[in-house]
Design a binder for these strands. Structure first.
Length: 467
RNA sequence: GGCGGGGUCGCCAAGUGGUAAGGCCGAGCUCUGCAAAAGCUCUACCGCGGGUUCGAUUCCCGCCCCCGCCUCCA
């Protein structure tokens, strides 16, 4: 069964097929972070959705070539570096580094390319594209020296967002310094230098300046993936104007249909409210790690709600995720102990469970149904083990099928190193238990808890989990 | 005002024209020296009002509420 995805462009579920004649390689572009600050969990929700999409496509045999850009020059990065009195590159490097640490913590599979907007080859590409647009009389230079895209030359502008541009309500957000534009909807391709930019500028045929945000993505996407993408992802807020502008620029320059599938991820709320700094519910990944939650717990929460639904991120949800993950861990550990390195035997039930999981994801990444399948499977498997009807080879076979799911979920327990002192206490306690010295055993359990570990006496022996 | 997404058990959340997956929490039981884990069992008439239908949570109409976008916010 093919993968089906909701294409924002058509507003309908479509069967996915890449442009690649062999039907294998998928070109995917995902809007990345603006590195002016630490990314927040709303950003990561989008990146995790994209990770799920990539991993599922790979599980279905596709080869995904993914680009995620880094916006390292824009109004916010410039004001940030000037405020701190450091060069732009130094300022953004801090947050680039943090971003890569964060995606690793969240187990997000790295993209194939992370182009930065300020890299000379991409600045050159942006200038090349703008020149092409100017030659076609689509871009024009305004009085302030900036270049704008004339949207009247691209009638389909607004189609992705289903916006009728004649009915746009004045929002008051159009800054007054853009009065030079011919039409209010025209957007900047190249911004002429102003004193507020300080030493941030590049030479161009139009004088010193810097690229507009939209052209950055068009340039990096087409430079790395060619004129036509299979999938372009981003947050819903990017549909208009950002993705609309990307389409206009790219298609006017290349003459080709830019992206075949557009996928957009809904926003998240925190504790039922819009995340905002003023409400005190604004979380970066680091904030949550500082509260003691782990990357995989946060990953689970961000992953477990369908990408097109608003996700209500709560601390209670993180706690629930911790328990649910513990259940998966316990099951996996139990299977591993039982399998003990035995060669896997074909497991019909496990294979069916795995297929049910993948088929749920085929359906526009229905992760809730997929996880429902997983937990059903876990219960059935536990039940079978309880009744003693599972051989080591069968346990190994079950684990092998689970690994396929896990290549998508990446839910392995954090590797924990148990301190030697704690291990010694556990051994001592095992001896006390063997001698039926329960008082001593309980004292030792308390001591182990003091050290931060919980010991559980399972049928397979003592197990330790972090408290 | 325009466009779009939602309202399903205390919380999170699938799904279907024929009487509702799963996770968390809670209760009871089994197992266990105890605890934990695991297993079993229990807990919803699906925002409101109409309509279509033998039958609607699922289709249609109206209404209420929440959220997002409407020119550089994932």
């Amino acid at each position: 069964m093919p993968v089906r995805l909701l294409n924002t462009a058509s507003r309908s579920i479509e069967e996915f097929a890449p442009l690649d004649p062999e039907g294998r390689r998928v070109k995917m572009y995902t809007c990345g972070p603006t590195v002016y600050n630490y990314a927040h969990i709303g950003n990561f929700r989008a990146y995790i959705f994209e990770d799920l999409l990539q991993r599922h496509l790979e599980a279905r045999g596709y080869e995904v070539d993914r680009v995620m850009n880094l916006t390292d020059v824009d109004d916010k990065t410039i004001s940030g570096c000037r405020h701190h009195g450091v060069p732009l590159a130094d300022y953004t490097q801090t947050f680039k580094t943090a971003f890569f640490e964060d995606i690793k913590t969240l187990r997000i599979k790295p993209a194939s390319h992370y182009p930065a907007a300020t890299a000379p080859e991409y600045i050159a590409r942006m200038i090349e594209m703008i020149q092409g647009l100017e030659a076609a009389d689509i871009a024009y230079k305004a009085e302030d020296g900036s270049l704008y895209f004339r949207i009247s030359r691209f009638p389909r502008y607004g189609q992705l967002a289903h916006l009728n541009l004649d009915e746009l309500r004045p929002s008051g957000r159009i800054s007054s310094d853009e009065y030079e534009k011919e039409a209010v909807g025209d957007f900047a391709l190249w911004k002429a230098w102003t004193p507020g930019d300080g030493d941030v500028w590049w030479e161009s045929p139009w004088g010193r300046g810097r690229p507009g945000w939209h052209i950055e993505c068009s340039a990096m996407a087409t430079a790395l993936l060619g004129p036509q993408l299979d999938i372009h992802c981003g947050g819903v807020d990017n549909i208009f104007p950002h993705h609309e502008a990307e389409i206009a620029q790219s298609e006017c320059f290349t003459g080709k249909h830019f992206s075949r599938y557009w996928l957009h991820c809904a926003h998240l709320m925190v504790e039922g409210q819009k995340m905002s700094k003023s409400l005190g519910n604004f979380y970066t990944l680091r904030d949550l790690l500082a509260k003691g939650y782990t990357g995989r717990e946060i990953r689970y929460v961000l992953l477990s709600v369908h990408y097109r639904l608003p996700l209500n991120f709560t601390i209670a949800g993180l706690d629930a995720a911790r328990t649910a993950l513990g259940r998966i861990d316990a099951w996996v550990e139990r299977l591993q102990t039982l399998a003990s390195g035995c060669a896997p035997a074909q497991q019909e039930g496990a294979a069916q469970a795995k297929e049910g999981f993948l088929q749920a994801l085929d359906d526009d990444l229905n992760i809730s149904a997929a996880l429902g399948n997983l937990f059903d499977w876990i219960r059935e498997s536990n039940r079978a083990m309880d009744s003693g009807g599972v051989s080591p080879a069968e346990a190994a076979g079950t684990l092998a099928e689970f690994q396929v799911l896990n290549s998508i979920l990446e839910m392995d327990a954090e590797s924990t190193t148990v301190p030697a002192a704690v291990l010694a206490l556990v051994e001592e306690r095992q001896a006390a238990r063997a001698a039926k010295n329960w008082a001593q055993s309980d004292t030792l359990r308390d001591a182990i808890a003091e050290a931060g570990w919980q010991v559980k006496d399972t049928k397979q022996g003592a197990q330790l989990t972090r408290l």
